[in-house]
Design a protein around this nucleic acid. Structure first.
Length: 725
DNA sequence: CCGATCTTTATTTTT
DNA sequence: TAAAGATCGG
C-alpha cells in the first residue's frame, strides 16, 4: 500500500500536499474545499483513478456525479487517459443523466412507461399552460411561469402535492395545480427534469431491497460542484451513501452562484455535520492567476460572511496590476475594450484567450456593435441551443409520437404543422373530448374515428411512420419522419429562413447517424432522451480565433489570459433585483469573485457613467465591488478625452459620490435646460401639469410631470413639446 | 391562419 | 431598446 501512496507513483506525481491528501483520502466521507483554479477536476479524476488502481474499488462500485454533461465528459476523458477502464459502463454522469439511467432500469418500480419521455423547461411550461386552460384557471392570476416554479421548487424540496397543505386560497390552488400537473404527466407518460430526480429518490426511499442493493454497490460516491446541489440532490446522495459508503464532495462555497435555481450552499455544512467531517480539505494553491488578481479577488470575497473560509495563493509571482477604466458611456466603454483587445492581439495574445464578461445578456449588444465595426471576430455564449430550435423540436415531436402517441405536448406541437386543416376549433374539440373522457389527445383522436377525416389522416400518418420506421436505422427513421410528415416540404417553401432550418434538420439526421445507443433495439428512445438531457453545448468548443463574450455565469469553470469584467455599476452588477437582502448581495459578490478568478494574466474592470437601460439613459454609480479591491492592486486608466467631460468624476481613490449627489447633479442639469422642479408646464396633449422630478444631462433630459388630468408621466425633452405655464 | 399593431416588460440557467 | 405576448382584422 505504502508504495502506492508514495508520490513517485506516476499517478500521484506532481500533486501538491493538499491535493495528495484529497486524492489518497481513505474510504470515508470528505469535503474538499476547492478554490478556483486549484486543480479540482484533477483531484477528482485522480482520486477515482487511484481508487481503481489500488484495487479499493471496482469500476462498477463507483458513482461520480456532475452538473453538466460537459463536466461529466471531461471527467470520463481524463479518467480514461489515467487508467485502462471502460468509462462508458461506469456510473459517471449528471444527476439527471444518472437518474434517467436508474429509471430506465427500474421503470416498473417507478410506475413509468418503459419509453417515458422527458419534458424540458419549455415543454413543461406548455404542459402547464394547457393544464390551466383545461381547468379553466385564469393564467393572469396564475401565470404559467409562477406555477412552474412552484412545482419545481416543491419537487426540488422533495415534496409531493399530497404532502402539502395551505390555508390561503392562492397556495391551495397552486397545490391543486401541482397535483393535476403530475396526474397529467402520468397520463401522458412524461417526466420533467425535477421529476427524474424526485422519482428516483422516491423509488429508492420506498424500496428497501433496491436501496440496499445500490448502497452495497456504490462504496464510493464522488460529487463535483457540491455547492450547487439542491435539497433533493443531497437527499438522493445521502440515500445512496447510507452510513457506510464514502461521500467525497468537492465544491467551493465562494463560487455558489445558483441559489436562484435552488442550489443550497448550506449542503456543504450539512455534509460535514451529517458525515462527521471534522474539517474540509482546503485546496488553496492556485495554478491559474497571477498574485495580484488573486489578492484582489480574495479581498472582495472577504466582505462576505458565513464563508467556510479560504485564501487563494500562488507561487507564480504578483504579475501585472489590475486595470480600471471608467468610461463616459456604455458605448465608450465598449470602444475602450475593443481598443485594448486590439492591443493585446498585437502583443501576441490569441483572441480565443480573451474574454469579455458581463452580468446580463443585454449588455452584449453594444459590445457586438462595436466589435462588428472593428471587424474583430467574436463568439457569444448563450442563446438558442440546437435542440431548442423550432424545426428540431417539430421533428422530435413526430419521433416522440412514434414512440409514445400519448405525448399530448408532442401532438399539439405538430398536429397542424405543416398546416393540414386541423385548426383551433378542431383542437378545441379534441381537448374537450379528452377532458370529458379522461383520455389523452391521441386516444380522443382515435376515438373520433372517421368522424373527422383530417384527424384520421394524422393518426394514420403517425401509425404509418411507426410501422415504416421498424427495421430502419435511426438516421433513416428520422429522415423518413421529416419527409413524410411534410416538414421538409414546408421549410422548402419557406423563403425567409427555410434554408437554415433545412440545414438544421439535416444536421439532426447527421447527429442520429453518429449516435450510438447502448441498446440498438431502443435507439429512438435513447436518442430522444439524449436530445432532452443534452440539449447541446452552448457552442462551447473553443478552437477558432474569436473573442469570447459571455455572462459571468457562463464563464464559471473557464479561464482566459485576459478578462474584461464590464458594466461594473450599481444596479447592474450587483444587479438591482438582488439588492433587497444581504443574501442576494452576497451572491452577487460571489459572482464578482468568479468573474475575477477567470483571469490568468490580465484583469480589466470597467464601468460607464451613462448607460442605456430599457431604452433610457441611466446614470449609475460605480459598483461597490470595484471599491472593495485594494487600491494598490489597481492601475487606474484615465478616460480618453472624447466627449466634453460633464462633471469630472472624483478620482477612483476618492470616496464615491453618493446617490444623493448624483441626483443633485441631474437636477442641476435639468435646471440648466430651463426647467426646474415645481414649475408649472403645459403639454399639447396632456394639458397642465407640474414638474416633480428630472433626470438626465445635456440634451438627453427627462422630466417627470404630474398632469392634472393624465396623472404622472415621464417625458423625454427631445420629443415632448412643453411650454411654461 | 397569418400578419400587423399594440402592450408589456426588462437577471443569472443546467438538466 | 427590443423582444415577446396579446389582440385584432382580413
Amino acid at each position: 500500500m505504502d508504495t502506492l501512496h508514495a508520490p513517485q507513483d506516476p499517478l500521484l506525481a506532481g500533486l501538491n500536499p493538499e491535493q495528495l491528501t484529497a486524492v489518497t483520502w481513505p474510504a470515508k466521507s470528505a469535503l474538499v474545499l476547492a478554490g478556483a483554479g486549484s486543480g479540482k477536476t484533477r483531484v477528482l479524476t485522480t482520486r477515482i483513478a487511484w481508487l481503481l488502481q489500488t484495487g479499493q474499488v471496482a469500476p462498477s462500485g463507483l458513482l461520480a456525479v456532475t452538473f453538466t454533461n460537459k463536466a461529466a465528459r471531461e471527467m470520463q476523458t481524463r479518467l480514461a487517459s489515467l487508467v485502462p477502464v471502460n468509462v462508458r459502463t461506469m456510473w459517471i454522469g449528471t444527476f439527471h443523466g444518472l437518474c434517467n439511467r436508474f429509471l430506465r432500469t427500474h421503470w416498473r418500480d417507478a410506475g413509468l412507461p418503459q419509453t417515458f419521455q422527458i419534458l424540458d423547461s419549455a415543454d413543461q411550461q406548455s404542459a402547464i399552460k394547457r393544464l390551466l386552460k383545461a381547468l379553466e384557471v385564469s393564467d393572469e392570476k396564475f401565470p404559467p411561469k409562477a406555477v412552474q416554479s412552484f412545482i419545481n421548487g416543491q419537487k426540488e424540496a422533495g415534496v409531493r402535492a399530497d404532502a402539502l397543505s395551505a390555508h390561503d386560497p392562492y397556495t391551495k390552488k397552486l397545490i391543486e395545480l401541482y397535483a393535476a400537473y403530475d396526474a397529467q404527466c402520468r397520463r401522458e407518460g412524461v417526466a420533467d427534469f425535477a421529476e427524474l430526480l424526485l422519482r428516483s429518490y422516491e423509488v429508492l426511499a420506498a424500496n428497501r431491497a433496491l436501496a440496499e442493493h445500490y448502497r452495497a454497490r456504490f462504496r464510493h460516491i464522488l460529487v463535483d460542484e457540491f455547492q450547487d446541489t439542491n435539497r433533493l440532490q443531497y437527499a438522493w446522495l445521502k440515500l445512496l451513501a447510507g452510513t457506510n459508503n464514502a461521500l467525497f464532495a468537492v465544491g467551493d462555497d465562494d463560487q455558489s452562484i445558483y441559489a436562484f435555481r435552488g442550489a443550497e450552499v448550506g449542503n456543504m455544512r450539512a455534509l460535514m455535520h451529517d458525515y462527521s467531517v471534522a474539517a474540509p480539505i482546503r485546496l488553496e494553491q492556485n495554478y491559474r492567476s497571477a498574485g495580484n488578481i488573486l489578492n484582489a479577488a480574495n479581498a472582495v470575497i472577504e466582505q462576505n460572511d458565513g464563508r467556510l473560509g479560504k485564501n487563494l495563493w500562488t507561487d507564480a509571482g504578483e504579475g501585472e496590476e489590475l486595470r480600471l477604466y471608467e468610461a463616459y458611456s456604455d458605448g465608450e466603454e465598449a470602444e475602450f475594450i475593443v481598443d485594448e483587445v486590439r492591443a493585446l492581439k498585437r502583443e501576441g495574445l490569441s483572441l480565443a484567450d480573451i474574454a469579455i464578461l458581463y452580468r446580463s445578456n443585454a449588455q452584449s449588444r453594444i459590445l457586438e456593435h462595436v466589435l462588428v465595426q472593428a471587424g474583430l471576430p467574436y463568439r457569444i455564449y448563450g442563446g438558442l441551443r440546437f435542440f431548442e430550435r423550432q424545426e428540431i423540436k417539430h421533428a422530435l415531436a413526430y419521433l416522440r409520437l412514434m414512440v409514445n402517441p400519448d405525448d399530448d405536448n408532442a401532438l399539439l406541437r405538430v398536429v397542424n404543422v405543416p398546416a393540414r386543416g386541423i385548426g383551433a376549433r378542431t383542437v378545441e374539440g379534441l381537448l374537450a373530448a379528452s377532458r370529458e373522457q379522461g383520455v389523452t389527445l391521441w386516444q380522443a383522436a382515435c376515438g373520433t374515428g372517421p368522424g373527422n377525416k383530417k384527424l384520421g389522416a394524422f393518426v394514420l400518418l403517425i401509425d404509418k411512420l411507426r410501422e415504416r420506421a421498424d427495421g430502419l436505422t435511426l438516421a433513416e427513421a428520422i429522415s423518413l419522419a421529416i419527409d413524410e410528415s411534410g416538414l421538409r416540404a414546408m421549410y422548402e417553401e419557406d423563403k425567409k429562413d427555410g434554408e437554415e432550418r433545412l440545414a438544421n434538420l439535416d444536421e439532426l439526421i447527421n447527429a442520429a447517424a453518429g449516435f450510438f445507443p447502448d441498446d440498438p433495439g431502443n435507439a429512438l428512445v435513447e436518442f430522444l432522451t439524449a436530445a432532452a438531457l443534452e440539449a447541446g453545448e452552448h457552442q462551447a468548443e473553443a478552437g477558432q480565433e474569436a473573442l469570447q463574450l459571455m455572462t459571468v455565469h457562463a464563464a464559471k469553470g473557464l479561464e482566459f489570459d485576459a478578462v474584461f469584467v464590464s458594466g461594473l455599476e450599481e444596479g447592474l452588477f450587483p444587479h438591482e433585483n438582488s439588492l433587497a437582502d444581504n443574501k442576494g448581495l452576497q451572491e452577487e459578490r460571489r459572482l464578482m469573485y468568479v468573474a475575477m478568478t477567470r483571469a490568468r494574466q490580465r484583469l480589466y474592470l470597467s464601468c460607464a457613467q451613462q448607460r442605456m437601460l430599457h431604452g433610457r439613459s441611466s446614470y449609475p454609480i460605480r459598483s461597490r465591488f470595484v471599491d472593495e479591491v485594494p487600491a494598490e492592486l489597481v492601475k487606474v486608466l484615465s478616460a480618453r478625452a472624447k466627449p466634453a467631460p460633464q462633471n469630472q468624476r472624483a478620482p477612483w481613490l476618492d470616496a464615491a459620490p453618493s446617490r444623493g449627489d448624483r441626483e443633485a447633479a441631474s437636477r442641476r442639469s435639468a435646471d440648466a435646460s430651463g426647467w426646474r422642479i415645481g414649475q408649472s408646464v403645459e403639454h399639447a396633449k396632456f394639458g397642465l401639469g407640474v414638474v416633480i422630478n428630472a433626470e438626465g444631462a445635456g440634451d438627453d433630459i427627462r422630466l417627470q410631470i404630474n398632469f392634472a388630468e393624465h396623472g404622472v408621466k415621464w417625458l423625454d425633452l427631445r420629443y415632448a413639446k412643453l411650454t411654461p405655464a
